[in-house]
Design a protein around this nucleic acid. Structure first.
Length: 413
DNA sequence: TCTGGGGTCCTAGGACCC
DNA sequence: TCTGGGGTCCTAGGACCC
């Protein structure tokens, strides 16, 4: 059986962890630029504050009531996530870390599942202080569903009985099934499939025709047929991206160049950290799609002759690409760089005519990475990235309580 | 006035190969 | 008048996830 362990209101719960006094008030965590709501605690959900809404919708509400609002602090969330994953790992089951706040485990034995899940749950609560919900079933899709309902019940839910499963499926909207989003759910509605139960018992051939192979797999998983196994090799990722919305709109090629260079440089560093090289780079620029400004979106990509993590090369390529798609007279709101075709640093295929000067330069770049890391600040960087700091605004960030000695939690006695 | 960032997988169509 | 079958790789776009 598969169990899915899912943290409750993860980002909001982490913020509560370090400021317990806010626990009985609504808590919100915001996206980059303090733009949208990306996490809410229970109290905030009760106030009907929606996921993904821009925060200015609730300006009045925030002024009138005591709502605690945080900028997102991914360093902190990442560290707390690691601690939770370590605890799950300590139970010694096969494990897949599915996201920052979720992990699947595969339990290859008969046991008192409910007792086991409660044990995992309480250990995480005791050692880290975060509440989790755990669902268990014969397939990943059903265990996802079980954890969804576990949140509404007492934290753990075992779905191992056909009648019980069907009972839950009947009250599940198709769009709440893992893998069925808005579009597919609409397609299902056209077939008069409204809930997960209808979906489970529908004709397979028609599902495959309308929703293709993935839709069929999801349906089979509802029938307790395993289609998705534990994916333990998630560590070899396929792409890395760096993208941002700008706090203010940008129109000149010069300033876009700086942003694109900044993205390319941060990707190059990520590649070096993970000992990877890329041989495919693409960039995009876009205007806002929410206002009355003239709209323009474009992207362009290129393959690299030699796989690399060299910042100078990536910046140069990215800037050349930008020249091709940049158009004057638009207000750009967002841009980004994405690399793929990733390969391991040590298994690089050289070009027959390539020069070997890259190696020493790479050593230099790694030294710079180290200096920046030790100073906990990007002290040394490329002029192309521009000297203007704070590419985004985030004023309400909590401290890096667990990863930085300067910001460590202080306790008064 | 202000609306996130980082991923995965699949499909259709085009261009090419023998 | 009649014009094959079996592949690969790439790209753009669409759908999904957290």
């Amino acid at each position: 059986v598969f169990a899915l362990i899912d943290c409750n209101n993860f980002y909001a719960s982490v913020e509560e962890l370090f400021e317990p006094k806010i626990k009985n008030h609504p808590v919100l965590v915001l996206s980059n630029n303090d733009g949208c709501v990306i996490a809410r605690n229970k109290k905030a959900k009760e106030m009907n504050i929606k996921m993904g809404d821009p925060i200015f919708y609730y300006k009045k509400l925030i002024e009138n009531k005591k709502i605690f609002v945080f900028s997102s602090n991914f360093t902190l969330y990442g560290d707390i996530s690691n601690r939770i994953m370590q605890i799950i790992k300590s139970f010694n089951y096969e494990m897949e870390i599915y996201s920052i706040d979720e992990a699947f485990i595969y339990i290859d034995e008969k046991s008192d599942y409910e007792k086991l899940l409660k044990k995992i749950k309480s250990k995480i609560k005791k050692y880290v202080g975060i509440d989790v919900s755990i669902g268990l079933a014969k397939t990943k899709t059903l265990s996802k569903l079980a954890s969804f309902y576990a949140k509404k019940e007492d934290g753990v839910l075992v779905l191992d009985d056909e009648n019980k499963i069907d009972e839950y499926l009947k009250k599940t909207d198709t769009s709440d099934i893992w893998g069925i989003g808005k579009q597919l759910s609409n397609k299902l509605k056209n077939l008069y499939i409204f809930n997960a139960y209808d979906f489970k018992y529908y004709n397979e051939n028609i599902i495959k025709k309308k929703l293709t192979i993935n839709g069929l797999k999801t349906k089979l998983e509802l029938n307790e047929t395993v289609c998705y196994k534990l994916n333990e090799s998630m560590n070899c990722r396929k792409s890395i991206s760096s993208t941002r919305s700008f706090a203010s709109k940008i129109s000149t090629l010069n300033s876009l160049n700086e942003k694109i260079s900044f993205f390319a440089a941060s990707i190059a560093k990520k590649l070096r950290d993970k000992k990877l090289n890329t041989s495919f780079l693409s960039i995009f620029i876009t205007t806002s799609f929410l206002n009355e400004d003239k709209k323009y979106f474009n992207s362009i990509s290129t393959t690299l002759d030699i796989a690399t993590s060299n910042t100078t090369i990536l910046i140069k390529i990215a800037k050349n690409l930008l020249k091709e798609i940049y158009k004057e007279g638009y207000f750009y709101k967002k841009a980004g760089v994405i690399v793929s075709n990733l390969s391991c640093e040590n298994e690089n295929q050289d070009d027959f005519f390539s020069k070997k000067d890259d190696e020493n330069f790479l050593k230099l770049l790694k030294k710079i990475d180290l200096i920046n890391y030790k100073k906990n600040k990007k002290l040394i960087y490329f002029a192309a990235e521009g000297i203007e700091k704070n590419i985004s605004k985030s004023n309400k960030k909590s401290k890096k309580y667990t990863t930085n000695f300067q910001e460590i939690l202080k306790i008064k006695i």
